[in-house]
Design a binder for these strands. Structure first.
Lengths: 194, 194
DNA sequence: AAAGAGGCTTGACAAATGTCAAGTGACAAA
DNA sequence: TTTGTCACTTGACATTTGTCAAGCCTCTTT
């Protein structure tokens, strides 16, 4: 399973990884299987690991006073998932993270992440680029949320990340877009008649 | 003016900065005065600099088909501003950045940023922490946009960043929150009667 | 096979928000 | 001073989106 990480790093950098470095990487990541509906993180706990998804589908969400779930992040193969705020600040998380499909992940603690950053230059760069991409992606999502209608946001998602629409049930997609399941159902109906 | 940067870095790290390092920093940053309404970046151009705001108030926004402005970022003292996507990817920006008040900024190109990262460890950490904080802040804003009503988003902003409400005109705040100026006016009226 | 749960759709209605138009007041330019 | 511009407010109305309730379908469990 660790092979997935090797490929992943290589996709972010051109630097080769030596065998010793590879050994360090193997020691840093802890593989774990997470079954559908199983939690990786529960609200109130401190996020001790970031998870690299080797295979599967997961989500990060909060639950409001009325018990309604608000999904703020989807994760599938080759994506990271976890609450960065809690992970870095060591504060109790306001979010839950759980598996939507049975998933294989690689867990990384904050200490191991520091270790990798210090010892493996390629990793430093990988993390830094990752942070930048996350920020850019967030910026796009903010832009969509203040500039576009619900219908346009759905079209945008369908264009950029069609795979998410197939992997996650419609009510979760609605939550991710910030609209009710009924509204999404109606938007899709309209979109079909074209 | 460069003294502002020294203080800024020290607020992010405990490492002292030597005189040689300080010299490198002085060479990297180019001071510039930007008058109210003056552009730092225009849509279609590549964002060549990130700007550290020493004094003043600026905004990053897009303009849609109908000519309506959508503000995705405010910047005041000690904040960075610029289009990160364009800056990193070297692609034409979809945004404008201009000054809302007369402002003093320090410009940093991509090359100089690399130089600082390579030569000054404290800077590497500063940028990395900055990226992380940006990501966390974005995440909070996404959460607000899908979970809260317009009224709650305003209350949230008023609580977290009251200074922005005083520095930026109300129609810009409305745009930032993703609502019409009329709606914000009504929300404020309601909020007063409590 | 029967029962139940969950996800999706649909209709009727309510609530939130946007749009348009008019009016006011402050401030800057002439 | 006068004029004009611009931000803000307010009212009337339109549009979008949410809420609630019912029904259908599929899948799982018993």
């Amino acid at each position: 399973m660790h092979e997935a990480i090797r490929k992943y790093i290589l996709s972010y950098t051109n630097e080769a990884i030596s065998d010793e470095e590879y050994q360090i990487i193997q020691d840093a990541f802890v593989p774990k299987k997470i079954r559908k509906r199983q939690y990786l993180l529960q609200e109130g706990d401190v996020c001790k690991h970031l998870a690299f998804i080797v295979h599967g589908a997961m989500r990060q969400y909060s639950v409001d006073d009325k018990g309604i779930e608000h999904i703020i992040h989807f994760g599938i193969e080759n994506w990271w998932i976890g609450d960065r705020e809690s992970f870095i600040m060591l504060t109790p998380s306001k979010y839950n993270v759980d598996a939507v499909e049975d998933s294989d992940v690689l867990l990384l603690t904050h200490e191991k992440m520091q270790l990798l950053s210090d010892k493996i230059p390629a990793f430093t760069r990988t993390f830094s680029v990752l942070d930048q991409r996350n920020f850019i992606a967030s910026q796009k999502r903010i832009h969509a949320s203040i500039s576009l209608t619900a219908e346009e946001r759905y079209a945008d998602l369908a264009e950029r990340n069609p795979s998410l629409l197939q992997r996650f049930p419609q009510n979760m997609v609605a939550s991710y877009l910030g609209i009710s399941p009924e509204t999404l159902s109606r938007i899709r109906k309209k979109a079909l008649s074209r």
